[in-house]
Design a protein around this nucleic acid. Structure first.
Length: 1073
RNA sequence: GGGCCCGUAGCUCAGCCUGGUUAGAGCGCACGCCUGAUAAGCGUGAGGUCGGACGUUCGAAUCGUCCCGGGCCCA
């Protein structure tokens, strides 16, 4: 039995741990162990499995895993059901690519059935890679029973949701202006549009719209960069507050087609940029004066105004600017988002002049019917017509960035299309209230980004004119579209359609088949499904119930797992999953779907640039894992900055945490294991005294440990992993390794055995063992591999089945403060030694110290200060001492509120106080000072007293601490210093000779007189420290030994000889080991 | 154009909510030390107009306004 040796590499360790998890089925066992415990509800946001996972996914997945593991350790059952987002354009695009086709016409030619078959085939291209990566980074998620958004059950639940929404009167049909590719016949998502911007030369035209019944026969001058929208013109928009002018053309010039005497209207600020004639200003007025005026459209007859009063009038709109154009915006309601909104508000006719194929409709005059809007001749034809009717003022080339189809490079058209909406605007207040009840991390994400978005919320456009998606379960009457039915279950559909086929699949095209006679009395029509599918966000937002196929089954499971206690995704999900979950749960259940959410920002490359495939700066997660290991990556991502800040992927930074934190932790374990094994200590048998009976430094460490446990627990409860990680690191590196182990080392071996040193060793092992095991438990949620390895090594069982540590009430504030004082003084003393050039190995007679507020170091801690500074004695000095000068500093935080604007005067008077007043203040007396002609009493609590000293080399001084070393040496001190020097050289030779730490040696020392003297007078210490069972001092004694070295120590010649002691000698020591 | 976040040492980040007069870490750099954890460990030092301006205040890295730069989301 012994403590195992750490594997040689991180990869070996992590993969070994993974193998054991699988052999033991540890994830399921950890769930099983919490069966019946309180449920902690987590929702997994479903990724799309037809894209590769990247390093940024490691961040979100680490945050999720952290919560799951932590809450499991605190006694909760945390179901972690995986999910896959399977519908939507990314899948369709991949299918098009594989089929070598592009655009809707080609898909329909191929057949929707075949197309969707290919979509389905490609859904899970990277599913295995996702699962493999999740496994490798230790993200525990139940992949055996995932929810899949394209499964019939899932779709049925989504249908149920939509039918409920309809029942509440919140579903309606309208238009939506979309970037649309006329060749592919499809709208594009903003993401796709963003990829296709190109710098192009377009024709911008200035068009005269003659006002009806105007005394001057004036024309309003409009401007557009898309001449093909002019036939659809139904209004002109002006800004009501901008100043417009009426000008008369007084002379001809460059290329403009106006005649002398023509009267034009445009924004005053645009005159210079737009006009190419000499003109005279007739009149100036605000835009509001034009509102309501009628004008003559250039393509009369292209649009039927019906009973619209507003058609072909001037309308006010605040989106109009004078940055470009004429300050008058030509409005074609169907071909621009602003236009459409304005048209809807003003009641303009909503008629297309262009068909879905991108060609003008038959109703369009001037020979345009049937022409494609992007064809080269079309624009010339439009300009000709404008010229003929006298509406063209002038045309010019116009350079701008315009979106193109990323697939086929066609210019996109902004076009109003049929679309289905959820009237979320009717629920804005409820959405805001429910959002306000969510515990957002960071909070400003909820109040700011999400809140602002909800306040400016528009109705949710949830239909897509595509193929691979949850079909919109809406059937419309082909005689009267007002007659419609929203189907909420397969059963209901079967009832309407008179049964469903055996192999019924709710996807297109099968779902497009069922139809039935319209149920409205007297209506001869047939009910047919509308062609659209649902926004994939509707799918993922439905997961709280759809993952259980609720309400059709699993009622209990759904209720137990709704709402989520916790979700975590990237900031890009504000308008995505965070919104769709919130919106749907607000509509259906009037409550938020999640109680707490942690938002993570992007992982950028080392230069702070967004990672993208096209830029080629994406980091391969597999490469990163093989270089750093999953633990270090997880740790780095959480500890380097808060999750909601953008993070740079800095390999150097990951190496650094690997070295600093993980190496230290491993080294500390290695140290423990080495000596525990050597000395035969084990936690099962090595009895230690209760914590309260142990020595001061043990109690100190356990006190710090309890404090750490409390703080880390608090941080993790509050979803604050970053401070938790930093605290843990500070404890392990600074307190456990650099102080406790450093100060305690000799207790772990027992060269000179006594009853007390045996007991002390057992205490030290128990204390260090506990600190390591507890650190492993605290680390487990963040870095699950090394923590599990250590915990198994130390305790024999998995950390992931363990309880999260709880404070054992051993905090001792006095002791912690005392140790803090020791460490401050030790640092100052070492600095003073360095300044004075006296190495630590040289013992000194004494150090005089000052601790703030006149504190003393408890006797049980004093030893550590003596040893750290290698001094025989520590003396506390006070303000009477001649090396100290007392300084009184004002405490502004106390003075400010009392003295207000006279604070500086009082503060100045305080700084001028001398030592006698300082002593009185320190003794607790008030002192009166003269400030600005007034005497005021200053209390001790209103000042700080600092000791200051001269520039003596041996004095260190900081923040109320002071150390003054006595640098004088005598022969005894010199001998002792040299003896310690000899020990150090012997140890170095031991190591160079390849001896094991526990090997006993035969040792011989020689050299000049001082060396001989030092060696003889400290024989016992030297032999003890170097494990010499035999020590001979004197020239020639060194020659017979195997390893010899001659060197110079501070000008003294030294000869060392040593060799491993024979078995005979070892046997005499063997009793202990 | 709108919203949110960020800007502190060469680099990565604390501190800001709750204002207090000597602004902290780590890395890197320079110098030194220690070693029965050793292809480790520790210490000391240099390094800062706290993005800029204005304001509030006795006092601003911290609060407010505006501006500049970067990122994200939306138009």
């Amino acid at each position: 039995m012994g403590y195992p040796e750490l594997p040689g590499s991180v990869t070996e360790l992590e993969e070994g741990v993974l193998t054991r998890w699988e052999e033991e089925d540890l994830f399921h066992r950890s769930l099983e162990a919490r069966r019946g415990s309180p449920e902690y509800v987590f929702f997994e946001g479903p990724p799309t499995a037809n894209g590769r996972p990247g390093v940024h996914h490691i961040l979100a997945r680490t945050i999720k895993d952290l919560a799951g593991r932590h809450r499991t350790m605190t006694g909760h059952h945390v179901l972690r059901k995986a999910g896959w987002d399977t519908h939507g354009l990314p899948v369709e695009i991949e299918a098009e690519r594989q089929l070598g086709i592009s655009g809707k016409p080609e898909i329909e030619e191929l057949g929707i059935a075949e197309f969707n078959r290919v979509c389905r085939e490609n859904l899970f291209t990277y599913k295995e890679e996702w699962e493999r990566l999740s496994r490798r980074i230790g993200y525990w998620l139940d992949y055996d029973d995932p929810y899949i958004t394209c499964s019939p059950e899932y779709i049925e639940s989504a249908w149920w949701a939509l039918s409920e929404i309809d029942r509440k009167g919140l579903l309606y049909k309208g238009y939506k202006v979309l970037p649309y590719c006329p060749r592919c016949g499809t709208g594009l998502s903003s993401h796709e549009v963003a990829q296709g911007y190109e710098e192009v030369q377009d024709t911008a035209v200035f068009v005269a719209f003659p006002l009806v019944d105007d005394p001057d026969r004036a024309a309003v001058l409009g401007w557009t960069t898309t001449p093909w929208t002019l036939p659809g013109n139904v209004a002109l928009a002006i800004h009501p507050d901008v100043e417009y002018v009426r000008v008369r053309v007084t002379g001809r010039s460059d290329g403009a087609l106006a005649q002398e005497g023509d009267v034009l209207i445009l924004a005053r600020d645009r005159m210079e940029a737009v006009l190419r004639n000499e003109v005279r200003v007739l009149d100036a007025f605000p835009g509001s004066a034009l509102v309501g005026r009628r004008y003559e459209p250039p393509f009369r007859g292209a649009v039927d105004a019906g009973d619209s009063e507003a058609a072909w009038t001037v309308l006010p709109a605040d989106f109009v600017t004078v940055d470009e154009g004429t300050g008058v915006v030509h409005t074609a309601v169907m071909y621009g988002e602003d236009d459409f909104d304005l048209g809807t508000r003003a009641g303009l006719p909503r008629q297309h002049t262009v068909g879905p194929d991108g060609r003008f409709l038959a109703s369009v005059p001037a020979g345009l019917a049937g022409l494609g809007v992007n064809e080269p001749d079309t624009e010339a034809r439009i300009l000709d017509h404008l010229r003929e009717v006298g509406a063209l003022y002038r045309a010019e080339r116009y350079r701008h960035s315009y979106p193109h189809c990323w697939r086929c490079d066609s210019k996109l058209l902004y076009m109003a299309r049929d679309s289905w909406y959820i009237r979320t605007t009717a629920l804005t207040d409820r959405l805001l209230e429910n959002n306000a009840s969510v515990d957002w991390h960071p909070p400003e994400m909820g109040t700011g980004r999400m809140g602002e978005w909800l306040r400016g919320n528009v109705d949710w456009a949830l239909s897509r004119d595509r193929y691979w998606g949850t079909p919109l379960p809406v059937w419309e009457c082909d005689a009267e579209p007002e007659h419609r039915e929203v189907i909420g279950s397969f059963e209901q559909l079967a009832e309407r359609a008179g049964g469903l086929p055996e192999d019924f699949d709710p996807h297109r095209p099968q779902i497009d088949e069922p139809c039935w006679g319209c149920g409205e009395p007297g209506c001869p029509g047939t009910m047919r499904r509308v062609p659209q599918v649902l926004d994939a966000w509707f799918d993922s937002g439905s997961m709280p119930y759809a993952q259980w196929h609720w309400p059709f089954e699993n009622d209990e499971a759904f209720r137990r797992h709704f709402p989520a206690d916790f979700i975590a995704e990237g900031v890009d999900q504000t308008r995505g999953w965070f919104y769709s979950l919130l919106a749907l749960s607000t509509i259906l259940f009037d409550r938020p779907a999640y109680r707490a959410v942690v938002v993570n920002d992007l992982v950028l490359d080392a230069e702070g640039q967004k990672m993208s495939k096209s830029r080629g700066n994406a980091v391969d997660p597999w490469e990163a894992i093989s270089r750093h290991g999953a633990d270090a990556i997880r740790w780095y991502l959480l500890s380097s900055s808060n999750p909601w800040l953008p993070k740079r992927w800095d390999p150097g930074g990951i190496d650094e945490v690997g070295r600093k934190f993980f190496d230290t932790l491993r080294n500390t374990y290695r140290f423990f294991a080495l000596y525990a094994n050597l000395e035969g200590w084990s936690h099962g048998t090595g009895e230690a005294r209760p914590a309260a009976g142990r020595t001061a430094i043990d109690r100190w460490l356990l006190s710090r440990l309890d404090g750490l446990v409390e703080a880390v627990g608090r941080d993790l409860e509050a979803y604050d992993p970053t401070p938790a990680a930093r605290r843990l690191s500070e404890f392990v590196v600074d307190e456990l390794s650099n102080w406790y182990v450093r100060r305690t080392r000799p207790r772990f071996w027992a060269t000179r055995r006594t009853r007390e040193s045996d007991a002390s060793a057992r205490d030290a092992y128990a204390t260090l063992h506990e600190a390591l095991a507890t650190s492993a438990r605290l680390l487990a949620p963040i870095s699950p591999f090394l923590s599990d390895w250590l915990h198994r090594g130390l305790n024999g069982d998995s950390v992931h089945l363990a309880e999260f540590p709880r404070s054992l009430g051993r905090r001792d504030v006095e002791l912690e403060r005392g140790m803090h004082d020791v460490r401050e003084l030790a640092a100052l003393g070492r600095a003073a030694r360095e300044k004075a050039g006296i190495r630590v190995r040289q013992p000194l007679r004494s150090v005089r110290v000052v601790v703030p507020d006149g504190r003393r170091i408890p006797a049980e801690l004093l030893r550590h200060l003596q040893e750290e500074l290698n001094v025989k004695r520590v003396d506390f000095i006070d303000d009477q001492d001649d090396i100290i000068r007392l300084i009184v500093k004002p405490d502004y935080a106390a003075l400010g509120p009392r003295f207000g604007s006279s604070t500086p005067a009082v503060a100045g008077a305080i700084e001028a106080l001398g030592a006698p007043d300082a002593r009185r203040l320190r003794a607790g007396e008030a002192v009166s000072v003269q400030a600005g002609g007034e005497r005021v009493e200053v209390a001790p609590s209103e000042v700080r007293i600092l000791e200051q000293t001269g520039d003596d080399l041996t004095v260190g001084n900081a923040a109320g601490y002071l150390t003054a070393l006595d640098p004088s040496l005598d022969d005894e001190l010199r001998r002792e210093g040299l003896a310690r020097e000899l020990v150090s050289r012997v140890q170095r030779l031991r190591r160079d000779a390849g001896l094991a730490v526990e090997d006993r040696i035969a040792l011989a020392l020689a050299g000049d007189a001082a060396v001989l003297e030092a060696a003889s007078s400290h024989e016992g210490e030297i032999a003890g420290e170097t494990l010499a069972v035999e020590l001979r001092v004197g020239d020639a004694a060194t020659d017979v030994l195997e390893h010899r070295r001659e060197l110079d120590v501070d000008g003294h010649r030294v000869l060392i000889g040593l060799e491993r002691a024979g078995d005979r000698d070892l046997a005499s020591e063997a009793g202990h080991a």
